[in-house]
Design a protein around this nucleic acid. Structure first.
Lengths: 197, 197
DNA sequence: GATCGCCTTGGACGATTGACCAATCGTAGC
DNA sequence: GCTACGATTGGTCAATCGTCCAAGGCGATC
């Protein structure tokens, strides 16, 4: 237990700071996370923040990008393995139900999007992660013969975040209730009946 | 031009503060709107903020609730007048395309939702406005014989906000591209094919 | 045991924050 | 002209902010 070098302890402090940031961004909002509350939550001295990170913004940026990759990475992998788009959607909706819409984990994504509109570097990193997820989803839909795989993937991805957002306002809004409707979007025989010419 | 009493000027200053808040919440984020930048944008002295409003939070709260009612009110009325759900959706999607996802007006709604998760009073006011919109939408769907009007209304409403959110990350994501897919959700003959028993 | 390198500490800096208040303003009614 | 009153001003308050830095701690290496 004792054989940890000072570099090890450094990595641990850094990790604790990032973990604290994941919690606090959702709890307090991106703009309300200060160096001092962050350090307190991490069980670390405030001065360490600017030793391990260039700035507070850089720390928060890193925390959310890590978290998004950690959540969306496995989801993307599972998506690439799935061949039935309907069940893939259902599995993701079930996953979505773990987020209440008010807990920090739910709000972290939304906060990240918002912060991304004001931080070009963060914007690019988030967009890249999201692009990967949508591309994998679209590929599943394409394989199943969907008429508009890219559009459907974009809509479902947007709907996911919208559902999380609205769940915070309406607790009755369970993902299970919406599952059949969302799945219909992904159905291969989905018809766009309003086509005009 | 001159015949304005001091009470009139008071109302004007109050209105200018609220208008400035609408701009700044989207530009800077809820937590970054300070009394001083707010007053400067409104062309008013900082001291006035706490004369016209109980607190900064109360001002911001009032600003977003007013804005939401102003946007969703007419939309709800138009919805109640419409009888064809497909065209109603399309009209709203066209309206949605006016929001780029990065302009202050787009972000105001998202910021409001987020702030609502941390401010119970704001939460209730937003939820009430949103409930009205969804109820009107669901009623249109019900009249056209939709299988799950409440679910579809909830999904479309959530998808709208999700689309705005994602448009900030992917400018190519136009509402027009998604229109056929969203409209399909609202189609009266919409089938939930996956029903199991 | 001395040296090296990374990590950690505690405090400091100037700037900004929300809130508050006594004094003063301008105008409408008497 | 005087009073009354809502609106406005300019300034102050303690608290908090992000950032930086000199000093010290501490294990690994020689």
């Amino acid at each position: 237990m004792a054989g940890q070098t000072s570099a090890d302890r450094g990595r641990e402090a850094r990790a604790k700071l990032l973990a604290a940031a994941r919690e606090l961004i959702g709890e307090l909002g991106w703009g309300a996370v200060s160096t001092r509350v962050l350090a307190e939550r991490a069980g670390v001295r405030p001065g360490l923040v600017h030793y391990h990170f260039e700035s507070l913004q850089a720390l928060l940026r890193r925390a959310v990008v890590d978290q998004m990759a950690e959540v969306l990475g496995p989801a993307t992998a599972a998506l690439e393995a799935a061949d039935d788009p309907g069940s893939a959607v259902e599995a993701m909706l079930a996953e979505l139900d773990r987020y209440s819409g008010t807990d920090p984990a739910s709000l972290l994504f939304i906060e990240a999007y918002l912060a991304g509109t004001r931080d070009p570097e963060l914007h690019d990193q988030i967009a890249a992660v999201l692009r990967g997820f949508r591309a994998a989803f679209a590929e599943v839909l394409r394989r199943s013969g969907h008429r508009d795989p890219d559009g459907a993937a974009a809509l479902v991805a947007a709907a996911f975040d919208g559902i999380v957002l609205h769940k915070g306002l309406d607790p009755d809004l369970s993902a299970a209730r919406l599952a059949p409707l969302v799945r219909a979007i992904a159905e291969p025989n989905h018809e766009t009946k309003g086509t005009r010419e």
